[in-house]
Design a protein around this nucleic acid. Structure first.
Length: 274
DNA sequence: AGGCAGGTTCTTA
DNA sequence: TAAGAACCTGCC
């Protein structure tokens, strides 16, 4: 089906924004992207004039992908909160990053993904996640162009993997973190879905109790897994920006409750320019 | 060849 | 409570 999208929506920027790891440009089809999430897979292709082709039914778009891409929220309105004169750097970053949206992803998949992300670059993170999916996920789609697409494993199937199998996914020292998290969620000791009811503070405290989860990974989980758009993960890139561009501090009060969106613009801009 | 990559844990004072 | 070292692995 083909749909017209008027608000910010740039597949290339979203794919490269570091929030998702199973969102890839199709090798033999420029402008088309493969997206795997929640046991579903879709190819999205930009047609021009704000039109996009989704390789799914209208019904699946309405019931799933529309929400996944957070289409009810206007990101151009969020960008409009930025005043060029009071913060020219953020304004430039947001202009550069226009088209980025924060996806509504699976808290479980995000937790494991960001545990894996520590001290890894994005290609390495993606490679590990794909190995895990191929090893413990199910085939959810198959096509000549993109081959077999696997779902992200359930907590149960990931918990069943031996440490040897986990190690074969190039997790390095993170293998024990992933194993423990899978055990905790599979056993029911950790109920990620119920945690969505917690306050920001309580949610952070719960996440920090998990083995292998520190402040940065917890904030990524809160922003990308729980879609709480005020969370502001600080990684080396963001810290570099804050140190060099905001020596007197970033104005978090001004952009609440959307500081996480600003973080994405700053992150994307810093990676493209520094 | 040595250092580093979107951090966290463990150890030590 | 805080700083420093160690940690897997792959790629410059």
């Amino acid at each position: 089906m083909v749909i017209e999208i008027k608000d910010d929506f740039d597949l290339a920027k979203i794919a490269d924004s570091g929030q998702c790891f199973r969102f890839n440009r199709c090798k033999n089809d420029a402008g088309a992207y493969s997206v795997a999430a929640f046991n579903k897979h879709v190819i999205v292709k930009e047609l021009g004039n704000d039109r996009y082709e989704f390789s799914c039914s209208q019904e699946e778009y309405d019931s799933f992908w529309k929400n996944y891409f957070d289409m009810e929220l206007s990101y151009s309105d969020i960008r409009a909160r930025i005043d060029e004169k009071s913060d020219p750097y953020l304004y430039s970053a947001a202009t550069f990053g226009q088209g980025i949206r924060i996806l509504k992803q699976d808290p479980w998949e995000m937790l494991i993904s960001f545990i894996i992300s520590q001290r890894k670059n994005i290609p390495a993170i993606k490679a590990s996640i794909e190995k895990i999916c191929a090893l413990a996920g199910n085939v959810i789609d198959e096509g000549e162009e993109f081959g077999k697409i696997y779902s992200f494993p359930t907590p149960e199937s990931l918990a069943k993997l031996s440490m040897e199998e986990l190690s074969s996914c190039s997790l390095g020292y993170r293998d024990k973190y992933v194993h423990q998290a899978a055990m905790d969620v599979a056993s029911g000791a950790v109920k990620l879905n119920e945690w969505s009811e917690l306050s920001d503070k309580e949610l952070m405290e719960k996440l920090l109790e998990l083995y292998g989860v520190g402040v940065k990974v917890a904030n990524c989980e809160i922003l990308f897994g729980y879609h709480r758009l005020d969370a502001f993960p600080k990684d080396v890139w963001i810290n570099r920006v804050l140190d060099t561009r905001y020596p007197d501090g970033f104005d978090f009060d001004r952009y609440a409750p959307f500081n996480g969106v600003m973080q994405q613009y700053l992150f994307f801009y810093s990676r493209g320019t520094m």
